[in-house]
Design a protein around this nucleic acid. Structure first.
Lengths: 211, 211, 211, 211
DNA sequence: ACTTAACCGAGACGGTACGTCGTGTCTTGCC
DNA sequence: GGCAAGACACGACGTACCGTCTCGGTTAAGT
């Protein structure tokens, strides 16, 4: 993982010797990274430009982040903390649909450019796509598992449900339209998708119980 | 579109004067492009390296392709001609499942690297993602429409079917797992996916017919 | 020696393939090098600044000169061609004195800064001091040998004269005052020096002939 | 002059408050400076490397020496105390020749590298060449004046002798060969040189007395 | 056979960004 | 207050590709 998160502080409370890292610089770098990433794609993004925009020396960037990818991953995750929580309305369909609409909203916003940069750059940089998975996908998916589990507990979904298949079926089409841009990606798409997939899941339920 | 396809020949049969374009060079360039693309990602690919590998001068590359994207798009589509045709078994489920398994096989092969490069690079280059849509996605999707239509005609699928929603639901999860690499992408995934989605579609059929 | 002198032309008349080297750039680089060298010392001179001043890319400088030293050596020798020829007055004392006065004049001029840079830089770069010897010292010393020989032929100097000892005795003090700056270096110094050393040389003559 | 010589102690005996300067550090820095200077030239010498080698922080170096030149000058003079005293044999020729042989021996030793660094670096740094003059050249030249004066007093040398001209004639050729390296610099050179120059000086004596 | 014109290789060119290194300054906590 | 540790802004380093250019030489179609 990137070095950008923490200073040299050990696990104990002791401070490392020497001048402490400038938190101001760290923030400025991450913020400039996001800003420039929204203006152009990942390959066009240059450390030179980030340093200039953040009013920081190149060496300071390189001191803390080994690669452009690590920096972008940090910048992304530093800005992706509180968004996109799952609601709990008492209905799986409702919970999923609301969260998917939120995701589409994010993808259509300026932040969508950052996600696209991350996923695009990640195709040639395993570290980058791993950062997306670890800091964006998995945290949300863990919440999604709970949402689905509530549905199972309430009897809305079959007990033997393949959660990953279900979630990929729900989110895959969104990611596909987002990345390939072959069709409109609006919030209604979330509803249609949710309807289609959950119907399929529930049917497997009833057919299972029928058998 | 890229200049790589045609020479200076006008619409009439007349040849332009002067030395004709070297077909050998063209092939060597496209082939080297694919070769190097499989070794590294799109951003790492350099025209310099392609020219050197193809034993061709840089100027020859630039003469025929305006950008790296155009060259990669050409190289990709020149190699994507006969793959991934849709079967016609008499069953939608069977037809789709077989084709999806084929797609997964391609994604897992060396050619998958090229697709990933195209989709990855395309996130910062509209021309590149457009090339993917026009030369890969749409030709296959047109066949998929026919496959689905046959299903409708046979009564396997409901008449008012949203084909794009259906196809994105079938393929989206494959693309998602391919690009994000958060879960195994093997051929069995095609079956499970096909089962889930078509069940959802058929259910909408029966519930519609029930109403 | 530095690559800066000639293009890729072989010894035969044939031109090398490819775009020929820009003579304009070469001149601009050498000229800027001298200009900047007069403004500051050798260590302060930067390739970056030379390229900027010559309106040339850094790569062009590095393509033709492997090190700053090679470039400076070339620039120096390109500008040191016609100066400081030895006169032929019929008197060794007169010939040497006139040439030494010329040398002192050069050392006191702007060009003196370049010589100082070369000799200073040469203390940590064998290539640089070698350039000074090969392109400045030896060509002049060869003329000096002839001047002394004329003196021997005329009987002004002893036949068994150690020319290198004599010439180092004449020029060494000039270089010493030039480099250490511990005493005034004006043109009269040449006369005094010439008087002292040639007297010593002639005395060895008469004492030899006396013996 | 460099700050390396004195602490904060005023002219009175009172000590300044706070931790006193570490004499150990000072010695280590000067010693490392000389050591590294012998390994590479003055431009290659870096404060960074000195601090690392002396196991001292960079700030400690900068606290006591304003520039690299000042540090090198200090290091040089700290190591040049007892060398190269002039003998007193009763013969000017003998005294000078012996001392010149000593100088050549120093120039050919490891310490010669330091002198070359000082003289080389001094061509772009007045402070450095001044340090060489003040701490090396003048102290020895003052002794040389006395040696020559003894020669005058004994009648070996003419009374109206231009001492600086004489000494530059004796030492200039040594410095020239040392710095330009165009000819062998061995101890025999001292004898030949001494012979030539003193002969010239004495001749001026006899011719003066003759006139 | 000769001209003509576009092609092709080679490779120099002005640029831009790279990632590294040393500078001299600073901020901290310990001694 | 000295000192180590080490972060910082700065500036130059030498390299790699970019996309453009300028050459000599090649290859056919049209005379």
């Amino acid at each position: 993982m990137a070095q950008g998160e923490q200073g040299r502080t050990g696990s104990d409370g002791k401070r490392a010797p020497g001048r402490p890292r400038s938190e101001e610089s760290r923030q400025a770098i991450l913020s400039s990274t996001l800003k420039l990433l929204k203006q152009a794609g990942f390959p066009q993004l240059s450390i030179e430009a980030i340093a200039a925009d953040a009013d920081v020396s190149k060496a300071t960037v390189y001191r803390w982040w080994p690669t452009k990818a690590a920096l972008v991953a940090d910048a992304f995750s530093a800005s992706a903390d509180q968004e996109l929580r799952f609601p709990n309305t008492g209905s799986v369909h409702q919970d999923m649909s609301l969260q998917m609409r939120q995701l589409i909203r994010v993808f259509r916003s300026q932040r969508g450019k950052v996600v696209a940069a991350l996923l695009g750059g990640g195709q040639s940089d395993p570290e980058l796509i791993a950062a997306f998975r670890d800091r964006f996908l998995w945290p949300r998916r863990r919440q999604a598992y709970q949402t689905l589990q509530r549905g199972i507990d309430r009897g809305e979904l079959p007990a033997g449900l393949d959660m990953d298949l279900t979630l990929d079926s729900l989110y895959g089409p969104i990611y596909m339209r987002f990345l390939i841009r072959h069709g409109e990606l609006n919030e209604d798409f979330a509803d249609a998708l949710c309807g289609l997939v959950l119907r399929g899941v529930e049917l497997s339920h009833s057919s299972q119980s029928a058998s």
